[in-house]
Design a protein around this nucleic acid. Sequence first.
RNA 1: GCGGGUGUAGCUCAGGUGGUUAGAGCGCCUGGUUGUGGCCCAGGAGGUCGUGGGUUCAAGUCCCAUCACUCGCCCCA
Length: 426
Amino acid sequence: MASRYQSLKGFRDTLPEESLRWQWLEGIIRDQMRRYGYGELRLPLVESTELFSRGVGEGTDVVSKEMYSFLDKSDPPESLTLRPELTAGAVRAWIEHEIGKNQGLTKWYYVGPAFRYEQPQSGRYRQFTTFGIELIGSPLPEADAEVILAGVGLIESLGIRNYRLRLNSLGMPEERAAYRVALLEFLNARRSQLSQESIRRMESNPLRVLDSKKEEDVAATADAPKILDFLADESRAHFNRVRGLLDDAGVQYVVDHKLVRGLDYYTRTAFEFQGLDLGAQDALGGGGRYDGLIEQLGGPATPAIGFGFGIDRLLLAAEAAGAIPNQSAALDVFVVGLGDSARAWAVQTTRLIRQAGLAADCDLLGRSMKAQMREANRRNARHVVIAGDNELAAGKAQLKDMQGHAQQEVELGDLLNVIQSREEGG
RNA sequence: GCGGGUGUAGCUCAGGUGGUUAGAGCGCCUGGUUGUGGCCCAGGAGGUCGUGGGUUCAAGUCCCAUCACUCGCCCCA
C-alpha cells in the first residue's frame, strides 16, 4: 500500500510459500508426461502477430480484442504478440523444424505463461499459466482418446474429484457450415427472444450463442438443432469410437451438443473439463482436434489433437478438494555460534553440512542465542549445533535434537558423521 | 467494454446516529533463563484510516471524484 509500484492488473507475484504448491503440481505434470511418453517443448513467449491471427482465427475474441500486441524496433516495424495460447506456437515449431519428416507421430507437452488482455476475476488473470499437450500426426479416434485420458489422468492424480468432462463433435468444416446455416435459420426465427449479445454473435460466430449463460438465450436455444445430427458417417463413426474408448476406460462424461470452443481451429472432437468447485471461470482445461490448422499455417496437411489446462485453476480446484499436501521447507540443521570466532566457525560448519547434502543455515543477523534458537524452531530445524568460543577451543560442540530436546556433546571432527547418521536414522 | 462488493497495522478484521491519544487477534522484536526453541508471562515497534477534493467548529465515519482489489456479464485456461 505504501509501495509506489504495484504489479499490473491481472499479473501476480508468486511468493516462495506459494511456489511450493506450484512445484507440487508441476512435479505431477512432469511425472505424468514421462509416463505418457510426451517430450517437453519450450517455446518463445513472443511470436509474430500474424501467427495468432491466422492460427487462432480473426473472428475470435482472443484475437480481436485480447492480444498484447506491439510494434518492435525493426525497420520496418514488425507486429509481435505475447502468446495468448500455445498451440499456434507449437504448430509453428513443428512445421519449422520439419518434425513430420522424421517421425510419424509427435507427442509434445509444455508448461508456461500465456497472456490475454481481459478483465480479471476469480480464476482469470492477464498472465496465466498453461499446461498443454499436442499429439500430431494421427487422425484416429484412438489418438483423441489418449489425449482425453491424459487429461483425466492428470485431474485424478491431482486429487480433483468434483469435475465434469463434456464432450462434443464440431464436425469437419463442410459439416459445420451446413449446421451453421440450419442454426442461423433457427436463431433468426427467435431473434426477439435472444439477448443483445447473442444477436451480435449471430454475425460473428453463431455457434457460440449456444454457449451463452443468459437465461433468455438458454431458453431460446433449448430446441436448437444439434450439430451431431449434421455429421456425416465418417465423423459420426469417429465420435462414436472415441466415446467407446472412453466407456471402456470407465471414464464418465456427458455429451453436450452445446459445447462450443472459442477458437476457430477445432474439428470433430471437442472437450472441456469443468471444475465444479470453481467460480464462473470453471473450465479447468479443454481442447480438441485440429486437423486443418497445420496446413493452414503453411505446413503439410496433418491431423492433430491437443488440450490446454489452466494451472491456476487446477490449483484452485485441488485446493478446494483439499488435495494439496502441506509442505514446509524444513531445515536439517541450524548452526548457532556464540561469540565472534564461533560465528565465523558457524559459517564454515554450515557450508560443510550443506556440501554433505543437508539443508543447513545459521544466523546472519548477529542475533542473541535465544533469537537464534527461535529462528531454528521457526524454520523447523531437526537439529541444532551450538558452540561458543571456549567450547570450540576445546574442540567440541553441542548437538541438540529439536524434537526430543536431547543434547549431546560431540567432538568437532565427528560432528558431520553424527549428524548424518542421525538424519538417516530418522 | 458493462454491472455489484470491498479498501483501517505485515496478515485477518473491529471501529451504532461525525467528537478530540484509532483498537483486537495472529505475526514480528526485546526481556523473564549472564549459552538453549516450542507453552506461558511482561513490555515494545509498526497505521498519510487507498488517493484527491468537498461539507463541518470537528471526518476512519457524510458527499463527489479517482485508483486498486474482488465477484459477475462477456470470453476462456
